[in-house]
C-alpha cells in the first residue's frame, strides 16, 4: 500500500473488531465510520454478519458508501423497521453508534443537552437507545474525544443505560468497544471502569486523560494496530472507493 494510512482508516479497522466473534447477527453501523467498519468486519473476520442496504433489505455484500448502482445489490432478506425492533428485542444485533455524551458508567445521551424542560440544545430524541442498550451489545465511535463528550457527571438525558444498571438487562448489556480519534477503550477495567486499550499514532496518555471528564484506567499504552493490507484494500477499493471517510477528520 503506497498511500499513507489515515486516522479514519485506523479507526475503521479498530472499530471493525467490535463484531469479532459475534456470529450470525445483525450488524448496524450508524454513521460513516461505524458503517464502513461493519462492512469491513463482514469482509474480513465475520462473513456471517447480516447487513442492510441502509433501508429495508438485507443484502449479501456490504453496501459501499456513496452513490452506487443498487441493481447490483444481492438482496437476501427483509428488514423493515418493525423487523429491526423484533430482531433487537431478541438480542441478535450489535450496533455501533455515536452518542453526543457518554459518562463513566457508559450511559449515553442523544436526546437533549441542558435542562430537560427547555433544553439548551435539542437533539434527536432517545430514538432506539433505551431498547438497544438493554437488549444487545453495542459499541461506540466518537470522532471528537473531549470532555464535552466524555462528561464528568452523569449525561444530561440518559438515553442508553449504563453499567451500574446492568443487572436490569437480563445479561444482555455490554459496551464492547469505544473507538475515538485518540484511541481504543472498553469498560472492562475494575468494577466496569473505563480503560485504555491502545493509543492511535502520535497520541499520548496525558492527552487521553486531559480529554476525558472521568477517570481512565491506564493499564497499557500500546499502539493501536495498523490496518492490514487486506483491510486497506477492502476499505479503499470496495467499501469506500470515493474516499467519503476522509471528511470525518478533514483528511
Amino acid at each position: 500500500m503506497s498511500e499513507s494510512i489515515t486516522l479514519s482508516e485506523i479507526c475503521i479497522s479498530a472499530s471493525s473488531k467490535a463484531w469479532e466473534g459475534e456470529g450470525e447477527i445483525l450488524a448496524t453501523g450508524i454513521g460513516l465510520i461505524p458503517r464502513i467498519a461493519a462492512g469491513l468486519a463482514k469482509l474480513t473476520h465475520n462473513p456471517d454478519l447480516m447487513m442492510t442496504d441502509g433501508e429495508t433489505y438485507l443484502i449479501s455484500q456490504p453496501a459501499p458508501m456513496g452513490k452506487r448502482d443498487i441493481s447490483h445489490d444481492l438482496v437476501e432478506g427483509y428488514m423493515s423497521y418493525s423487523r429491526v425492533f423484533e430482531n433487537l428485542w431478541g438480542g441478535k444485533r450489535h450496533a455501533m453508534v455515536t452518542p453526543t455524551q457518554i459518562d463513566s458508567f457508559g450511559q449515553t445521551n442523544i436526546s437533549a443537552i441542558g435542562d430537560y424542560n427547555s433544553p439548551k440544545v435539542q437533539l434527536l430524541g432517545v430514538r432506539g437507545f433505551p431498547g438497544n442498550f438493554i437488549n444487545h451489545k453495542n459499541s461506540i465511535f466518537i470522532p471528537n474525544h473531549s470532555v464535552k463528550t466524555f462528561v464528568s457527571s452523569a449525561v444530561d438525558m440518559v438515553s442508553g443505560m449504563g453499567y451500574q444498571n446492568k443487572d436490569l438487562s437480563n445479561g444482555k448489556f455490554e459496551i464492547k468497544l469505544v473507538v475515538t480519534n485518540l484511541g481504543v477503550f472498553d469498560f472492562n477495567g475494575k468494577d466496569d471502569s473505563f480503560q485504555l486499550l491502545s493509543l492511535h499514532p502520535g497520541v499520548s496518555v496525558d492527552e487521553v486523560i486531559e480529554n476525558t471528564g472521568f477517570d481512565v484506567i491506564i493499564n497499557s499504552d500500546k499502539a493501536t494496530p495498523m490496518p492490514t493490507d487486506k483491510e486497506l484494500a477492502c476499505i479503499r477499493e470496495i467499501l469506500d472507493p470515493q474516499g467519503i471517510r476522509n471528511s470525518i477528520f478533514g483528511e
Binding site: F85, L88, P119
Partner: peptide
C-alpha cells in the same frame, strides 16, 4: 438529522413531551 421547528419548540419550552424509545411507542 435535526428538525429545526421541533427543536425551536422544545428549546423555548412551548410543548409538553412524553419522550419514549421507538419500540415503546410501538
Amino acid at each position: 438529522p435535526l428538525e429545526s421547528h421541533f427543536r425551536q419548540a422544545r428549546q423555548k419550552n412551548e410543548i409538553e413531551v412524553m419522550e419514549l424509545d421507538e419500540g415503546m411507542v410501538q
